[in-house]
Every structure is written in structure tokens, then in C-alpha cells.
Design a protein around this nucleic acid. Structure first.
Length: 410
DNA sequence: AATCCACAGGAAGCCCGGGAAC
DNA sequence: GTTCCCGGGCTTCCTGTGGATT
């Protein structure tokens, strides 16, 4: 490569017109000043929470809806407006947002709440009721209404932490000054089925369901954001409808739609294109899918990686699908080669199920009659991509293994 | 109709690291 | 230091099961 060529490699980046004005607008963390097609929900929630401004306890609310239907953004939006209004009315009011996917145990939730009110609680160590008492004292120090937003509240079911909901719904009877009200946000429509009926009735005093956006509504949302995000005229006509249509197929997920639009723009920008085209959107779709998988595989613990490797080896060497027992046999061999502890089949079975939930493999339970019941396991990702990803892990990079050929029976 | 395979998947409990309090 | 508590990964033990085979 000569010097001239080197100079030239930067040229396209320098002379090209930027496509974006403000990319941040397309991130789902951004809250626009208006939320299209959610006016009713906003009114509903605002109406329920309004008594807080007079120092009364609002009813608890349970909000349902699939991912990307605007539950979180709408609730946060209303809470923010409420806090603004509270300042005007001189009402003592706090809204606290907790994401139960991250903060997922009774201890952690109470500890987080306490910290919000200036009590320092260690990450672990105290008995849970001590944390509870600390929180209670912290909020009861003055007259105020505390609204707790529990996002992804359904995640508590899997963690067996639902008793924290019960504790929080009952806390008002132990408070003299402060008042607590809860907003639970759930992705799972069947969430209350897993709850104790006492919790169910007190948490679900008011229930609001967020319906998925349809393609038309997604288009409106995208248009609104695109106006702020992109320079005028850089989006080809079909781009927004295509993003909307692709996301609508995935149960009307606005978050996906926005990601799609943003990544399409980024790809176009990188290619030095002056316009975002439908082809960019399709590339973006592929990129998002494979990025998600890649990240999931990379962050897998070693044991899971070895299990995945075993599935790969089996898939390459056989024409029929693998079963749990076969995977376990190969897995054991791989562990010996890699010098890693061998886990029990019970545990490996769970690891396979985890790979399934991550969407890396596809497993289903089948009965083979006399030959038992097992999981049939298939890869749901390109085999070469997986191999490459696993090779990145130095513990696995040197391992090659092929299934020994069946012993011939004479 | 009874049997029996090859697991699934629940329950309980162990062990360990991290952190606090004493 | 010791003692307590928590959470997560894991094992042990267990009961359950769909349907081809006997």
C-alpha cells in the first residue's frame, strides 16, 4: 500500500455528509416530550396517582404488556410529571424506580429503597428484616407519599422473591407519616397466576393493559423520532414502514423498531451512503440478530460453553438430532481434554435448558417410547459462527474433538 | 395391558465467597 | 479473628412420564 492510498482511506469519512443530527433520540432510554398512541394510558395512570398530590395514598397499579409496548416509558413519564406537579403543590412526593430483573431479591430491593432515602445498607450481610426496618424508619421520618415502580416485577416469581411485594403492600399499616403505593410492571400477562391471592388483590387494585403497537402506530413513533434524529430527506421512503413492519411482526416492539432504525442509519453512515435505504434496514436486522447471539455466547460461563461445544460436535458428526445423554457423553470427554471439572448430568440438563432460553439451541422434550424420554437438541445458530465465538475463549481454543466412530460389530 | 427406558425436572441441602457486625 | 447472613452454583435424591415394546 502506498502513501497515497493511506491518505485516501480517511477521505470518504471526512467528506461525507453526516446522516444523523442526534442519534440519542433513537435510543429507548430517551423520553420524548410526547408519547404517541399512549394518551389514554397516561391519563389513566395520572388519574389513579393524582390523590398523591393531596397526600393521600393512591391505589396500587399493575401494568401488563409485552416488551416494547411503552409500559416503562409511560410510567416513568407520568411519575416525572407527578413529581413536577408535587413541587408546584408543595406536596412531599417521591417516585422510585426499581428494575426487578437486576434488583431481584427481597434483600436487594429493600436495600436499594433504603439507599434512595439516604440509609447506607451493605450489599449483603444484614438480616432482611433489619433492612426492612431501616427502610421503614427512613421513609417514616416525615409526611410523604412514596411511589415505588417495580419494573419487570414478573422476574421476582422465578427468583421466589414475591414475598417482598406482600411486605411492601402491607407496609402502610406500620407507617405513621409516610404512605407507600406500588406500581408493578409486568411483561407476563399470566403474572398474577403465580401470586398469593392476598398479594394479587392488593397489588392489582387497578390494572392496566398495554396492547402491542401495530405497524401503523410504530410508524408514527418512528416518524416522530426520526424527525429529531436524522437530517431531512436522508431516509428513503420505504425505510420507516419497513422498520415498523419488521418490529410489528415481533409483537409490536417499539424498542426493536427504534434499534432497527438507528442501526440502519449507522450502517448507512459507515458505508458512506448519503441515504438510508431498505437494504440498510435488512442488514441492520441481520446484524442485530447475530450481535445478540454473539454477545450471549461470549458471556457464557465456561461450563455452558463446553456443553455448547458438545452439541456442535454432535451436530457435525451425526445426521440425527442429539439427545441429552449423547451430549453428556461428549461433554465429559471435552471436560477431560480441557481439564475442567465434570458436572452431573442433572446440572448439564439445566445448562442445556439455559442455552435454549437464550435462543442458542432449540430443545424439546420427546418420548421415544421404549427408548425413554429425552430432550432433542438442535443448534439454532450458524455452526461456523458458534465455533468462531467459542474459539475466542482461550480455555477452549486448543480443543479439537471428534466423536470416535462406532465400534463395528464384526 | 403391563412394562420399562432414559431421561425430565422438583426439592433439599451443601459449599463457597463476599460482606457486616461483634 | 469469629460468627452470622445471603446468593449462586452445584449435587443428591427423588418422583414422574409418553409411548414402543413385550
Amino acid at each position: 500500500m502506498n502513501v497515497n492510498a493511506l491518505e485516501n482511506i480517511f477521505e470518504p469519512f471526512l467528506k461525507k455528509e453526516p446522516i444523523f443530527i442526534n442519534k440519542e433520540v433513537l435510543r429507548h432510554t430517551y423520553t420524548p416530550s410526547e408519547l404517541p398512541h399512549r394518551e389514554n394510558e397516561i391519563k389513566q395512570i395520572a388519574g389513579i396517582l393524582a390523590p398523591a398530590l393531596k397526600g393521600e395514598t393512591p391505589s396500587n397499579i399493575l401494568i401488563y404488556g409485552k416488551t416494547g409496548t411503552g409500559k416503562t416509558i409511560v410510567s416513568k413519564f407520568v411519575c416525572r410529571e407527578l413529581e413536577k406537579a408535587a413541587k408546584k403543590f408543595n406536596a412531599n412526593l417521591r417516585c422510585i424506580y426499581i428494575n426487578c430483573e437486576i434488583v431481584d431479591t427481597k434483600y436487594r430491593i429493600l436495600a436499594n429503597l433504603s439507599r434512595e432515602f439516604g440509609k447506607s445498607v451493605p450489599f449483603t450481610g444484614w438480616p432482611t428484616d433489619k433492612v426492612y426496618n431501616a427502610f421503614k424508619r427512613a421513609i417514616d421520618s416525615k409526611k410523604q407519599v412514596v411511589i415505588i415502580l417495580l419494573d419487570e416485577i414478573d422476574k421476582l416469581v422465578a427468583k421466589n422473591s414475591t414475598d417482598v411485594i406482600y411486605t411492601l403492600t402491607r407496609i402502610n399499616s406500620e407507617l405513621k407519616n409516610a404512605k407507600v403505593s406500588l406500581i408493578g410492571i409486568s411483561n407476563d400477562l399470566k403474572f398474577t397466576q403465580y401470586l398469593d391471592s392476598r398479594i394479587k388483590s392488593s397489588l392489582g387494585e387497578e390494572e392496566i393493559v398495554f396492547a402491542p403497537y401495530n405497524a401503523k402506530q410504530l410508524e408514527d413513533i418512528l416518524k416522530q423520532r426520526a424527525e429529531l434524529a436524522f437530517k431531512e430527506g436522508v431516509l428513503e421512503e420505504g425505510v420507516i414502514p419497513l422498520c415498523a413492519a419488521l418490529a410489528a411482526r415481533e409483537h409490536g416492539d417499539a424498542r426493536k423498531a427504534l434499534d432497527l432504525l438507528r442501526i440502519s442509519g449507522e450502517i448507512a453512515e459507515r458505508e458512506g451512503a448519503s441515504k438510508v435505504t431498505e437494504a440498510h434496514v435488512r442488514k441492520a436486522k441481520d446484524k442485530i440478530e447475530s450481535d445478540n447471539i454473539a454477545e450471549a455466547v461470549r458471556t457464557l460461563p465456561t461450563q455452558s460453553k463446553i456443553v455448547l461445544y458438545a452439541i456442535i460436535v454432535l451436530e457435525e458428526s451425526k445426521d440425527k438430532v442429539a439427545t441429552t445423554g449423547e451430549v453428556y457423553e461428549v461433554y465429559k470427554n471435552l471436560c477431560r481434554i480441557a481439564g475442567v471439572d465434570i458436572l452431573t448430568q442433572r446440572r448439564v440438563s439445566d445448562l442445556i435448558s439455559e442455552l435454549d432460553t437464550l435462543g442458542i439451541v432449540n430443545s424439546r422434550v420427546v418420548s421415544k417410547g421404549r427408548y425413554g424420554r429425552t430432550k432433542e437438541i438442535k443448534l439454532s445458530v450458524d455452526i461456523q459462527q458458534l465455533r468462531d465465538l467459542l474459539r475466542e475463549d482461550y480455555k477452549l481454543s486448543g480443543i479439537e474433538y471428534k466423536i470416535p466412530r462406532q465400534r463395528r460389530l464384526f
